[in-house]
Amino acid sequence: MPAESRLGAGARLALTTFTVAPVRAGRIDRATAGAAMAFAPAVGALLGLPLAGVLLLFDTLTTPLVAAGITVAVGALLTRGLHLDGLADTVDALGSYRRGPAALEIMKRPDVGPFGVVALVLVLLVQAAALAELADRSRPAALAAVVTATAAGRLGVTLACRRGVPPARPEGLGALVAGTVGPVALATGAVAVVLLAVAAVPGRPWQGPLAVLVALAVAAGLLRHAVRRLGGITGDVLGAIVEVVTTLVYLGLLLSD
């Protein structure tokens, strides 16, 4: 497939994978999947724009906490709740202390176990509380913070799909995207998100980039643990990484407030 065609198909696949945007995915193969995972941070930044708009709009109409709760709900709707579902399934599997196929079987179950419930409640509470605090900042800073966090969450997926990371199953999203992202694409995405983060904390231009880098370091540790326990990555693991990184970046942007 020509480079332009592959990039265009990758951008469409990224939109359909990470949002509810009614875009035809077009051709899907590993080359296209690799382009889509490289585009993931850009899609996250685009997603952050309407979420920041929702937060700032409802902050003028109601309390910051209510505005934050609505923003979290809209975020779940715009992503079909897939990342939250992946978080719950991944935590249930890792919390079971089982390995390999036994752990993967837990991830396939339609119910959510106690570990997954606790993880969902904790992540949603922290994100809502963080957004409520961010709503009190200047509008440009709040906008930059939300866009940074959502972009960084998807950069975590780019990191998880880098070369050398295996899939846990021979089929599914993990098998399609595992090992498809090269070092140049990963470095480009990381630099872009770090630069975006500079404006997220007024008066402390270093804090946003540091929050992103620390969150990615935690994601790398989670990724290694998942590969050791599950044998590789799955779509659920990618969803879990999105939510973990997003939440940690929100926390990092609020330190010393």
Rank of each mutant, 00 (worst) to 15 (best):
V20H: 00
T60P: 00
G156Y: 02
P183C: 09
R162S: 10
I241D: 04
V184T: 05
A220C: 06
A200W: 07
L15E: 03
K108S: 15
R12S: 02
A178L: 13
E105H: 14
L57I: 04
R139L: 05
V245D: 07
G34V: 05
F18K: 05
L87H: 04
P2E: 13
G34F: 15
A132S: 15
P209E: 00
V245F: 02
V146T: 01
T148A: 12
V74L: 09
G8A: 15
V54I: 12
G113I: 15
G174Y: 08
L255T: 05
A185C: 08
G100T: 15
L87P: 06
A76R: 07
L248H: 10
A168R: 03
V181P: 04
D136N: 10
A200L: 00
A141Q: 07
G100Q: 11
P22M: 06
A145C: 11
A187L: 15
V177E: 04
E171Q: 09
A185Q: 12
L186E: 13
A175D: 10
T32G: 05
A102P: 14
G8S: 12
L230W: 09
L46C: 12
V201N: 02
A21K: 00
Q127W: 02
V218A: 06
A168V: 11
L251Y: 03
D236N: 03
G81F: 10
G203N: 07
P110C: 04
A45R: 14
R98C: 13
H225Q: 11
A102R: 13
T60D: 02
T234M: 08
V227C: 15
D29F: 07
D89G: 08
L51A: 03
A103L: 09
T71P: 05
Y97I: 05
E133T: 10
L94E: 06
L7S: 13
A76S: 06
L57P: 06
A42E: 01
G113C: 14
V121F: 13
L176S: 11
I241T: 10
L55I: 01
G48Y: 13
A199G: 08
V126H: 12
R80E: 05
A52V: 13
V23K: 07
A52H: 11
A45S: 06
L131A: 03
A211M: 09
